[in-house]
């Protein structure tokens, strides 16, 4: 780290307007492929979803689908999905943050590598395989259930079910905690030893360090990670589909059903209205997440 990085003046993003003279065009042309690519495969489909959600199934402008999603069963699905997002974010963010803290501050370099690789696998590719693994562990014939039975605890004596809200929350922990570790570790790593030393030197106890310096620095990142976890559980489809047998109404599953054509055709655009609803809720969580993460990077060098 040289002095140049410290003395750098913060330059706000340059304004994007300006005359499009020949030189400017030359700079922009190589950017065309990615803009067209994003436009065709991302913005165009999302625009179609948005526009269609304000049309009836006959193709006329109508608010019918937008109204529909505020009524059951969709209203209930939104409530369930938001609840699942919140409960999952709460149950995963706290242990995830504590685990990340212990590993980042006490673990060796190689241990941190292993944890980050393992977290990467579980957070990104866990979904479906994890669901099946839980069936193997906690299904009626599951290994864990049989071991517990031998120890004298019959899990299935009561009305336990893996395919319930609680079951889903537990399975989600297995990709949510790793996700928390991935997104929150940089913030812990960014707490410099100099700050502890300086606070101690200025007369602060370790508790005072956390109260005045450590926690205020970690809080924004924690809030951001929480929002990401919410959005992740709220939008998760693969695990939910493998785990539920249609007994819990969740928005992603209902969209899936509408797309699969399991429901009558005159609800085609209801799926798009649901999708718009999902994008809105997801954006409410993700945009603050991205903004906070960006600001926190200022001291996480």
């Amino acid at each position: 780290m040289t002095s140049t990085t410290q003395d750098r003046v913060v330059i706000k993003g340059a304004p994007l307007r300006g005359t499009l003279d020949r030189q400017n065009l030359g700079v922009l042309v190589p950017l065309l492929p990615i803009v067209l690519f994003l436009g065709f495969f991302f913005f165009f489909p999302m625009a179609v979803v948005f526009v269609d959600s304000f049309k009836s199934n006959e193709g006329n402008w109508s608010m019918i689908n937008m109204v529909t999603i505020f009524h059951d069963p969709y209203r209930m699905a939104f409530i369930n999905s938001i609840k699942l997002g919140l409960v999952s974010a709460i149950t995963a963010s706290i242990p995830g943050a504590l685990f990340a803290y212990v590993i980042e501050t006490k673990g060796s370099q190689s241990l941190r590598r292993i944890v980050s690789s393992l977290s990467g696998v579980l957070a990104n590719t866990g979904g479906v395989p994890l669901a099946f693994m839980f069936v193997a562990a906690f299904g009626a014939e599951g290994s864990a259930v049989m071991i517990l039975k031998k120890l004298g605890w019959d899990l299935y004596a009561g009305n336990f079910s893996l395919f319930s809200f609680t079951g889903i929350v537990v399975v989600y922990l297995y990709f949510q905690i790793p996700l928390m570790i991935i997104v929150f570790s940089p913030a812990i790593h960014g707490i410099r030893k100099e700050w502890r030393d300086a606070s101690q030197n200025l007369g602060a106890t370790p508790l005072q360090f956390w109260r005045f310096i450590g926690l205020p620095l970690l809080l924004p990142s924690f809030a951001a990670s929480f929002l990401l976890l919410f959005a992740s559980a709220f939008a998760a489809y693969a695990t939910a589909r493998a785990m539920t047998v249609g007994n819990i109404a969740l928005v992603p599953l209902q969209i899936g059903n509408l797309v699969d054509g399991n429901v009558s055709i005159n609800q085609a655009n209801a799926g798009k209205a649901l999708a718009v609803g999902m994008v809105v809720i997801s954006a409410i969580a993700m945009i603050p997440y991205l903004i906070i993460q960006r600001r926190a990077r200022r001291w996480q060098t």
């Binding site: 100099e194 700050w195 300086a198 030197n201 200025l202 005045f212 310096i213 620095l217 001291w299």
Partner: peptide
């Protein structure tokens, strides 16, 4: 004792 460190020792939230 007052100590001045090499760099980056200011509390970034204050």
């Amino acid at each position: 004792m007052g100590m001045v460190f090499q760099a980056y020792s200011l509390f970034p939230n204050l």
